[in-house]
């Protein structure tokens, strides 16, 4: 997939994959003596709650979840910059503006890339748990959102199939990790990597449980029931 194709073209490719590519690779597969018996056909899409936004299935569903995460972060920082907490310094504002712009790039990238398969843009947020006028409230949520997004993007990467999708999401996840590190440092010095485990690895979260955390920040109901699972 070196071309950005329309969703219709992609759907077509996916539909024909099982036969055409299978024949191409039949020789290699035969040598392995494998596994075909354990492969079942992709299930039909599960119905979602009426009025809910369905993220979709396969890579598209995962990329839509990444899009949702980036919508969340972008909308949050847009609000933070628009309604600065009392006492926000110019330096602090500079960081928030830069992070806002990165998240807008991420968000708009997904919108364009997903095209007609994308979930709606600008899904309305529920900010009732945040007091934007209070620094402590804003910083705590920034920390929470960045940690959630880094873990969620890594989880998405684990499940994606397409190489270029894995690449693009990982290239964004590391920038979100840069955000997360400095926001952590702003909350408490030297906590830039406070949650690494004994192998020096970051937290990763499967998209299903990630969505269970993030859905509260959207006013519309979001369904991930067709997304790939761990």
């Amino acid at each position: 997939m070196k071309e950005v194709t329309t969703q219709d073209q992609k759907a077509h490719e996916n539909a024909s994959l099982s036969r055409r590519k299978f024949l191409n690779y039949a020789g290699a597969i035969a040598g392995a003596g494998i596994l075909i018996a354990s492969c079942k056909k992709e299930d039909d899409p599960k119905p979602v709650e009426e009025g809910a936004i369905d993220l979709g299935s396969n890579d598209t569903g995962l990329l839509n979840y990444a899009y949702l995460l980036q919508q969340l972060e972008a909308a949050f920082y847009i609000e933070v910059v628009k309604n600065p907490f009392s006492g926000m310094t110019d330096a602090e504002k500079g960081f928030f503006v830069a992070m806002r712009d990165h998240e807008i790039v991420h968000r708009e990238f997904f919108k364009n890339y997903l095209g007609t398969s994308a979930i709606p843009p600008s899904i309305e947020n529920d900010w009732s748990s945040i007091d934007f006028s209070v620094k402590k409230s804003v910083m705590a949520k920034a920390k929470f959102f960045e940690e959630t997004v880094v873990a969620g993007m890594s989880g998405i990467c684990k499940l994606l199939i397409s190489e270029e999708h894995i690449q693009i999401v990982s290239k964004m996840a590391v920038v979100d990790a840069r955000h997360s590190a400095i926001v952590n440092n702003f909350v408490y010095p030297d906590t830039f990597a406070e949650k690494t485990d004994g192998n020096g690895m970051d937290v990763q979260q499967d998209p299903q449980s990630s969505l269970d955390i993030t859905r509260q920040f959207f006013k519309k109901s979001i369904s991930g029931s067709n997304m790939p699972k761990y």
């Binding site: 840069r178 440092n185 690895m201 990763q204």
Partner: peptide, 23 residues
């Protein structure tokens, strides 16, 4: 890319490296 487990390990280290870089 062909190995989901190792790919995930590298991913979870890459974001930690990014945290170090930002610090």
């Amino acid at each position: 890319i062909s190995n989901k487990a190792f790919r995930s390990d590298a991913m979870n280290m890459a974001t930690v490296n990014a945290r170090h870089a930002a610090h």
